Amino acid sequence: MSNNLLVLQSDFGLVDGAVAAMVGVALQEEPSLKIHNLTHEITPYNIFEASYRLFQTVEYWPAGTTFVSVVDPGVGSKRKSVVALTESDQFIVTPDNGTLSYIKKHVGIKAIREISEVKNRRENTEYSYTFHGRDVYAYTGAKLASGHISFEEVGPALPIDAILELPVVETSFVDGAVCGAIDILDVRFGSLWTSITREDFYVLNPDYGDRFEVTIYNNDMLVYQNQVTYGKSFADVRIGQPILYINSLYRVGLAINQGSFAKAYNVGVGSNWSIEIKKI
Rank of each mutant, 00 (worst) to 15 (best):
residue 5 L to K: 12
residue 6 L to N: 01
residue 10 S to E: 08
residue 16 D to G: 03
residue 19 V to W: 01
residue 20 A to F: 03
residue 21 A to V: 11
residue 21 A to C: 07
residue 24 G to V: 02
residue 27 L to H: 06
residue 31 P to L: 07
residue 34 K to I: 10
residue 37 N to L: 13
residue 43 T to M: 11
residue 46 N to D: 14
residue 49 E to M: 06
residue 50 A to C: 08
residue 53 R to I: 09
residue 63 A to G: 05
residue 69 S to P: 00
residue 78 K to P: 01
residue 79 R to A: 10
residue 91 F to Q: 04
residue 93 V to E: 06
residue 98 G to E: 02
residue 102 Y to E: 14
residue 106 H to M: 04
residue 108 G to F: 10
residue 110 K to I: 02
residue 111 A to Y: 00
residue 113 R to L: 12
residue 117 E to W: 00
residue 118 V to D: 10
residue 121 R to D: 08
residue 122 R to T: 07
residue 125 T to E: 10
residue 133 G to E: 01
residue 141 G to P: 03
residue 144 L to F: 09
residue 145 A to F: 06
residue 151 F to P: 00
residue 152 E to K: 15
residue 155 G to Q: 11
residue 163 I to K: 03
residue 167 P to R: 08
residue 167 P to V: 10
residue 169 V to T: 14
residue 169 V to Y: 02
residue 170 E to S: 14
residue 176 G to P: 09
residue 178 V to L: 11
residue 179 C to F: 01
residue 182 I to K: 03
residue 188 R to Q: 09
residue 188 R to T: 05
residue 189 F to R: 03
residue 198 R to K: 14
residue 202 Y to N: 13
residue 209 G to W: 04
residue 210 D to P: 02
residue 211 R to D: 04
residue 214 V to R: 04
residue 218 N to I: 00
residue 221 M to T: 15
residue 225 Q to W: 00
residue 228 V to G: 01
residue 229 T to R: 14
residue 233 S to T: 14
residue 233 S to W: 08
residue 238 R to E: 14
residue 238 R to F: 01
residue 246 I to P: 10
residue 246 I to L: 15
residue 252 V to R: 05
residue 254 L to C: 05
residue 256 I to Q: 02
residue 259 G to F: 09
residue 261 F to S: 01
residue 262 A to S: 15
residue 268 G to L: 13
residue 276 E to N: 04
residue 278 K to I: 07
